Computed example of a mutant assay.
Amino acid sequence: MVLRSEEDIRIPLEHEPNTARFFIPAKCIRELLVGNAWLDFSILQLWCTCMHRLCISRNRSKVFGILDPVCLDFNPADPSTKSKVQGHIQTRLRDLNKVCYLAPYLFKGHWQLIIICPKDNSLVVLCSMHRDLNEGMIKIVSKALEVHQLCQGNRKKAKWFRPKPRKQPNGNDCGYYVMKNMLDIISANITKSWMEVFNDPTALTEDDLYDLRNQWATCFLDLYNT
């Protein structure tokens, strides 16, 4: 994650109540707009607010919850950080009461999208490299949902789904694929049939990438001018 500098731009976030304002490095914005660069935490954080606004505009606020990627970041060697992440997920599941939660997750420089669906007792990972989650995060998310379900009187074990979605052709574009999957899920109101819906490994086109950058920039300018 890029450290704050005098070039950082302060803007409001709306998807995460515990983060009233945050600073986005100007360097990360330039890299996004130029393209062909790996996306930083701050870019995906702002995209979460874009998706939060999309939920409101499409009248889907009761369907989708957005989890901030920074709140999912943990140190595999530090058990206390794992407990903190699990506690955060459990709190959000309890307080928001959504059908599905979309959680952009970064591990060792690679972005993946975790989807938590309490009502169906299902968990999904969408990865543009067709990899599974690391074992630590699998345990954290599984345990968080298990505890939440037990509080609801449900003792059934959650089922994981691992579709084969669009596949990136390089090592830098994983953030864009997470952005695109979040956009598609909310736009089409997708809450189930994950294996059938995300079964096309075709790479994103340059037009797709341009559209994502354009939507991100539009939301950024609107937030910046707020």
Rank of each mutant, 00 (worst) to 15 (best):
L3D: 05
L3W: 03
S5N: 01
E6Q: 13
I9V: 14
P12H: 04
P12S: 12
E14W: 04
E14L: 13
H15I: 03
P17E: 03
N18H: 09
T19L: 13
P25T: 07
A26L: 13
R30I: 06
V34R: 06
N36L: 12
W38K: 14
Q45R: 15
L46F: 09
H52P: 02
H52F: 15
I56Q: 13
S57Q: 08
S57K: 10
R58W: 01
R60K: 08
R60P: 03
S61V: 04
K62S: 14
V63C: 11
F64Y: 13
I66T: 11
D68W: 09
P69H: 03
D73S: 03
F74W: 10
P76M: 01
P76Q: 10
A77Q: 15
P79N: 13
T81L: 10
S83Q: 14
V85H: 12
G87A: 02
H88Y: 15
Q90S: 11
T91A: 14
R92T: 14
L93D: 05
D95T: 13
Y101C: 10
P104F: 06
Y105C: 07
L106Q: 11
H110A: 08
L113C: 08
I114Y: 04
I114T: 07
I115R: 01
I115N: 04
I116F: 02
L123K: 06
L133W: 00
L133V: 09
E135A: 07
G136L: 07
I138A: 02
K139N: 02
V141I: 13
A144F: 07
L145S: 01
H148P: 03
Q149S: 14
Q149K: 06
C151K: 14
N154A: 01
K156I: 04
K156N: 15
K157Y: 05
R162M: 00
P163I: 00
P163W: 00
P163E: 00
Q168E: 14
N170E: 13
G171P: 02
D173Y: 10
C174P: 05
G175L: 10
Y176F: 14
Y176M: 08
Y177D: 04
Y177C: 08
K180Y: 11
M182W: 07
D184H: 02
D184G: 01
I186N: 06
I186T: 12
S187D: 11
K192R: 06
M195I: 10
D200Y: 01
A203D: 01
L204T: 05
L204D: 02
T205I: 11
T205S: 15
L209E: 08
R213H: 03
Q215C: 07
A217T: 08
C219A: 01
C219V: 07
L221R: 05
D222K: 13
L223A: 02
